[in-house]
Design a protein around this nucleic acid. Structure first.
Lengths: 386, 386
DNA sequence: CTTAGTTTGTCTATTGGTTAAACTAAGATT
DNA sequence: AATCTTAGTTTAACCAATAGACAAACTAAG
């Protein structure tokens, strides 16, 4: 079967998913409202809602306000019908969270790690996830899946092909985790996950086409077009950290020269700061205490970020660009230079109505993103025809 | 009505479109084959095929080869059920073609122009289109629409907001042409149209994610993701000619510096060639006669093109990059340097299985692209439920 | 308090599509 | 000639959305 064929079951599945989505987004809401908003007939909505009630994906909560007639029955999304686990594997930390189906964090485990060989990290993850599972409250569907964000190149089969900062190559992470926990596992690049997290719960909730810039040790980019993550042919999209912005410029760890992340990343920042500073945090501390040299350093990084963002805007004509990850902590000093660079370089029509924002979720962008992938997957499965 | 709802009519419409698409792509084909390939039931296929026959979008052509039983009835797409007109407005020419529904050019009109004020071009276009209409053969649906490719920024309402090389700003081209000819008109950026043309009929027929580089006086890029043109928020996507590849580099006509097209376009080439050469054609002639200096010039341009293509590949992880428009004529000399630059700079995983090709349609990319847009639009309308 | 009107949600019959299965058509095979 | 195969059509069954009647529960006006 080459292409998608349609029949009554797909119709029902789609409408059911639509109803559920409306309840998730607009709760509290009544059956009548759903019919109104969706364009479906009252009777159709009624029957789909009843199925969703039986599946415990939604619940009723007494009558609402009358608007001149019979009072409506208020419907809610049952966000604790199951729980998702989101994991962010960083260069020196592992962050695991248990979220409900609306991306609220219920339990959080954070662990610093010194070295990152795969077996070590895998066992750390295993321990952390197991303790989340042990502590989680009861629910109809239990743990519906695990999502993992990794700073590296991930293919569509959930293998980490290359994660230079972790020292990983060809790690079958999805296979390993599914074997251990027997639930669906989703592996994503950290920037892609962050983009989805911001789109679902953070700064990007109102927009269709979003480019999320994960500016950390390196730079990765998550591309959301028409509300969907764009992954590319193999899942490798968004490696814009290795976009050349300066021909024959600074050498980059990737072997090329003049890459964006050689100028605008945390790594570049620390390099420029010189020998006596070790961490981004200490630089931020200095800047907060009025150190003009450090502030200028931040401004310079901001300018470089701006060049890359210029390229992004001219390429994608997005609704919004979101700056996230560690460098977003320096918003106070980098925002102005970024905006200036855009103003002076980017095509006028493209600037118009384009929003530039900073991460709304901070260090949780990635975990919430992968958790949202897990939820999305679950909802798609569950809203099948029974 | 915020979102899409589904009912039996949408099912039918989709299935009918699917059947028609299969016939278009795989003709000659029988009803039984369609059922096989699509997964639809024989009876469903039969009834949909009969409707398509009545609409004269397809026709039968006697029995085919038996495969051990009753011989099948062979179905064909009726590519002359109507005709589309495609127009490419260039800096010094206007190209108009009449195509059938499969993108075959039946009549072609080419006219050189000296100056490009809008009223002049509009009247030229009007004359050319009128003569195409007068010469066209009879058919069931006549001229189903007009598509126009323009070298500039086009919004989703079919207005040309800015076309620097034509000297146009805020031209309501779609409105004007629809008023004159009373058929649906589609306006697209020339690179977007070229991308679609190559994907439908040219070098990109086998691929899902294609980036088409229109390298002419300037550089524009058409982005096809999952077989669909990506237009961006306002329709301005793909202005990668103004991607910065060299910080504080050469000034560009856009007001910025270091833009890709300041290094890798026909304009850049002629600038580098110096005062005594006027056209790309004369340079090609020199190169063909063994002029090493000119060949080196081409190689240099190829290298610069490579830098931008590096950025494209790392960003999009596409199936294929296609180089088109005027600079594709210099393939003989620029291909090698492009490939070298990619080899030396682009991330290894991204290079893998990535195809780099040159335009398969030559100067017809744009006209065939807009014509294909018109056809797509028509098919979508016609396969409506009757 | 009564009555009319309105809004919410359900029930029943209808509509319009796909599908299953029987059937006809026309060839190949034995 | 009899049987098997494949192609395509017809008929009835099925299923989901819909239209419209209806009941329940409320507001508003007299």
């Amino acid at each position: 079967m080459v292409t998608m064929t349609w029949n009554q079951q797909t119709v029902k599945k789609n409408n059911k998913a639509l109803v559920l989505q409306l309840i998730m987004e607009k709760e509290p809401i009544s059956r009548a409202d759903i019919a109104q908003v969706s364009g479906l007939h009252k009777a159709t909505v009624s029957s789909l809602v009843n199925e969703l009630l039986e599946e415990e994906l939604i619940f009723e909560s007494g009558p609402g306000e009358s608007s001149g007639g019979r009072r409506p029955v208020i419907l809610h999304f049952n966000k604790v019908a199951g729980y998702a686990i989101g994991i962010d594997i960083g260069v020196n930390y592992v962050l695991c969270v248990l979220t409900d189906l609306k991306g609220n964090i219920l339990i959080e485990k954070n662990q610093l790690v010194n070295r990152t060989p795969y077996p070590t990290i895998l066992s750390t993850v295993q321990t952390m996830v197991q303790s989340l599972i042990d502590e989680k409250p009861g629910s109809r569907y239990g743990v519906i899946g695990i999502g993992v964000g990794v700073p590296g190149i991930v293919n569509k089969e959930g293998s980490v092909l290359l994660a230079p900062n972790l020292g990983w190559t060809n790690i079958q992470l999805k296979v390993d985790l599914e074997k251990i926990f027997q639930v669906p596992v989703i592996i994503e690049n950290e920037a892609n996950a962050g983009a989805f997290g911001e789109q679902q719960f953070g700064a990007g909730q109102d927009y269709q086409n979003i480019i999320y810039i994960s500016a950390g040790i390196g730079i990765g980019v998550g591309i959301i077009l028409n509300k969907d993550l764009y992954q590319g042919k193999n899942g490798f999209s968004g490696e814009m950290g290795h976009m050349i912005i300066d021909i024959d410029g600074k050498p980059c760890s990737c072997g090329s020269r003049g890459c964006w992340e050689a100028y605008a990343s945390e790594h570049a920042l620390l390099e420029m700061a010189g020998e006596n500073t070790d961490t981004l945090e200490s630089l931020i501390h200095q800047a907060e205490n009025g150190d003009e040299a450090v502030k200028n350093l931040f401004r310079k990084i901001g300018g470089y970020l701006g060049y890359g963002i210029n390229n992004i805007i001219n390429t994608f004509n997005p609704d919004q660009v979101i700056v996230g990850n560690r460098l977003a902590l320096t918003k106070e000093w980098i925002e102005e230079p970024i905006r200036n660079t855009i103003k002076n370089h980017t095509l006028t029509h493209h600037q118009h109505e384009m929003k530039l924002d900073f991460s709304g979720l901070g260090k949780y962008s990635t975990v919430l993103g992968v958790s949202a992938f897990v939820v999305e997957n679950f909802i798609k499965e569950e809203s099948r025809v029974l």
